[in-house]
Design a protein around this nucleic acid. Structure first.
Lengths: 223, 223
DNA sequence: CTCAAACTAATAGCAATACTATCTTTTTTA
DNA sequence: TAAAAAAGATAGTATTGCTATTAGTTTGAG
């Protein structure tokens, strides 16, 4: 028994909704696999088309370019985080516990079986950590932001900021602290794995490091 | 009377040292101008060659590809930060004042006239904020890290960690906090400008926002 | 039913990008 | 002053990013 998670991803992200056809869903699923395997710079629509047994032109009918496909994947992640936070925090009324749960969600692989979607969560996590900043670190940022494609990220930060203010109503920078926590969760995971000298992790605490570091930081900042 | 700042940038970053010839220095200077103007994705060696009145082949004699040129520019920035910190902190013995000065350096444009170099510091700052993460968020991270090209960043974090420990010897994550402060300085500046909903900045506090936010955060974390 | 409109897929092709190779000329320096 | 090194000119290749055209397939109005 499965139900299908479907998120209202901004329509200007795609040309044709990939969620409405078999080939569209293949583009997302195998897109995640291939971006994970090759890295975003080496990923191309041609390689993706070969992977899923179709042609480049078909992929271009769904997405204007590979940046838009990445934006779709990362948007899906933002919506999924938002959904997970709602779901996990709903019966949790202590803001401290809520904040701990938020960091838990941000620093661990997304749970595998929630929804009928079969995206590889390990790969999705790798992409989020290594590639997500590339969706906004582009010269076209002002025009794509005007399309509203970052709304999900902004909503997520607003939700986190609300919980922070419930914990400490006098804290002045809850939105910045939220985006800091999200971004730091990503690149501290990356640094632990690839540039450990930029962290204080070691082989023993590696696995829970980002969680422990961020929890310590968050509660010290919020007091 | 000018003296020339020269930093020991890792030799594997370039094929031929751009600092040793006129055309090499032009590649860096106009490279900074063009990457700032076009964004890293739209920047090409062909466009750079036209800009400085030479050919693509000549630029390729200095750098293997545009990623290496960016790495050179960002390495120069890391060395310059390190140098600036030494210079500004040398007669400052209070760790609290030192930490405040470090954040000041990280959240403001680099000073213009230090050294004989004529890189445009405003453009360099834009590049650091918008493009620097692209030097390590690549599939080849493990092999390029082995070349030692990130040593300057690691040394910088070590230096910052030392000051943090002087201020609070019991803090457990000084290296992570250093990289967090550096990265957060970059993207909070970016967010204030392009995605202000991810921050708590407004038109009135915009200019000093990153500084104020990070100073508050740092001293709350260190206690 | 059926025939045209609309939608989808497949093929081809083009311009830009990311290089590499070669050969000539100029500059350096031993 | 010869030879080594650097720069310039020119050409060429494979890949990338994207578009145009055509062929086939589905849909739905009469």
């Amino acid at each position: 028994m499965e139900f299908k998670l479907s998120f209202p991803i901004n329509e200007s992200v795609y040309i044709k909704n990939p969620d409405h056809s078999d080939i569209g869903r293949k583009i997302i699923k195998h897109g995640i696999d291939l971006i994970n395997e090759l890295g975003f710079e080496h990923f191309t629509f041609k390689k993706l088309a070969i992977e899923i047994g179709t042609t480049e032109a078909t992929v271009y009918r769904y997405f204007e370019n590979k940046h838009r496909l990445l934006l779709y994947i990362i948007s899906w992640y933002w919506f999924y985080l938002d959904y997970l936070m709602d779901y996990r925090l709903q019966n949790m009324h202590d803001p401290k516990k809520q904040l701990e749960e938020i960091i838990q969600i941000l620093t661990h692989e997304l749970p595998e079986s929630s929804g009928g979607l079969d995206y590889n969560k390990k790969y999705l996590n790798n992409i989020v950590v290594a590639e997500s900043s590339k969706v906004y670190l582009v010269k076209e940022i002002e025009s794509i932001n005007q399309e509203g494609v970052f709304k999900a990220y902004k909503d997520l930060c607003r939700k986190m900021a609300t919980v922070m203010l419930a914990y400490n109503p006098t804290y002045k920078y809850p939105h910045s602290l939220s985006s800091t926590i999200v971004e730091t969760a990503h690149y501290q995971q990356y640094f632990v794995q690839y540039l450990p000298r930029l962290t204080d992790a070691n082989d023993a605490n590696k696995k829970e490091y980002a969680n422990v570091y961020l929890t310590d930081l968050l509660f010290k900042v919020l007091g």
